[in-house]
Design a protein around this nucleic acid. Structure first.
Length: 254
DNA sequence: ATGGCCGAGCGCCTCGGA
C-alpha cells in the first residue's frame, strides 16, 4: 500500500493538479490539507468519476482536511476527540486495515506569539490522541503538514531558520514526543533518491527553482507498518506546474 | 532582472500562510 500526503493550498484551485497526480502516481490513500472549503463544496463527483472515495472535514477559507482512497473508507473520526477546536485540522479513517490520521498542524506564526501557544496546546492534544490510537491500531500512519522541520538539515539555511518558527526547540520536542509513541519518520529513515529532501518552498524569491525549501510534510508510521517500508517519494511534478501548491506531495510504500 | 507570492473574501486591501 502506498500512502501519501499533500497540502494542496485550496482544493478548488488544485483539483486539476490533484486528479492528474493521482492518475500518474500509484498511491492508494492520500491525506489532503488546506482544502479551504466546506464539506458541501467538496468535489466528490469528480473524484468518484476518477475512482476515488473521499471523506472531508472542511471549513470556509482556512484549514480543512480530507482522506482519499481507492478502497472503502471506514470508521471516520473528525477532529481530535475531547479537544475543543473550531479549526478543522484532523480527520482519521481506516483503509485496508491501516488506521490513517491526516493532520494539518498549526503554523504558529512566531515563537512566543498567541498562535504559537495554541500550536503548543494543539500538539499536546495530538500527542494524547495519537498515543490512544497507537494502542488500538497496530498499523497506524499519521500523515500531513506538521509545520515542523525536525532537524537543521531539514531547512535550506539553518542560519536563517534555527530557533525560529517551525524550527524551535519546543516544536521539535513535540515532534520527538510523537515519534516516542512508537512512530517512524519514513522520509528520514528512507530518504528518496533525487535532488531534494524538502517538501515545501516559498512562492517568493524563486525559492523552488533555487531549492530553498523545508522538510515539513511527514509520513509517520507505526513500527509494525514501517517494518514493511520499501520506498519514499517527494513528488516534484505538481510543484513544477503552473499555479502550483507551495507543497509537494509525499508518499511512502508499505 | 539576485527579485517584487498566493488564496480567499461582503475583495481592489487585509489576513494567513511557513
Amino acid at each position: 500500500m502506498r500512502i501519501g500526503t499533500w497540502n494542496v493550498n485550496s482544493l478548488r484551485v488544485r483539483l486539476p493538479h490533484l486528479l492528474e497526480w493521482l492518475e500518474t502516481d500509484p498511491v492508494d490513500v492520500v491525506g489532503l490539507q488546506e482544502i479551504k472549503m466546506q464539506d458541501e463544496q467538496f468535489p466528490h463527483e469528480a473524484l468518484r468519476a476518477a475512482g476515488w472515495n473521499a471523506v472531508s472535514n472542511g471549513q470556509k477559507t482556512y484549514n480543512g482536511v480530507a482522506i482519499l482512497s481507492r478502497q472503502a473508507i471506514e470508521d471516520v473520526v473528525l477532529d481530535i476527540p475531547g479537544f475543543e477546536d473550531p479549526q478543522k485540522r484532523v480527520i482519521a479513517a481506516t483503509v485496508g486495515g491501516v488506521r490513517v490520521i491526516c493532520v494539518y498542524v498549526v503554523n504558529g506564526q512566531a515563537v512566543g506569539s498567541e498562535k504559537y501557544e495554541y500550536k503548543m496546546r494543539w500538539l499536546s492534544a495530538l500527542h494524547a490522541y495519537v498515543t490512544s490510537e497507537a494502542a488500538q491500531h497496530e498499523k497506524l500512519a499519521v500523515v500531513g503538514d506538521y509545520n515542523i522541520a525536525p532537524a537543521p538539515e531539514d531547512t535550506h539555511d539553518p542560519e536563517v531558520w534555527e530557533g525560529g518558527i517551525l524550527c524551535s526547540d519546543a516544536e521539535r520536542a513535540h515532534y520527538r514526543e510523537l515519534l516516542d509513541v512508537g512512530l517512524v519518520d519514513c522520509l528520514a529513515l528512507n530518504p528518496p533518491e533525487g535532488e531534494t529532501r524538502f517538501t515545501w518552498w516559498d512562492y517568493r524569491q524563486a525559492a523552488f527553482r533555487r531549492n530553498m525549501g523545508l522538510r515539513i510534510d511527514h509520513v509517520l508510521a507505526s513500527k509494525a507498518l514501517a517494518a514493511t517500508l520499501s520506498e519514499c517519494q517527494i513528488h516534484l511534478e505538481p510543484r513544477r506546474r503552473e499555479r502550483p501548491s507551495d507543497h509537494a506531495p509525499v508518499s511512502a510504500s508499505f
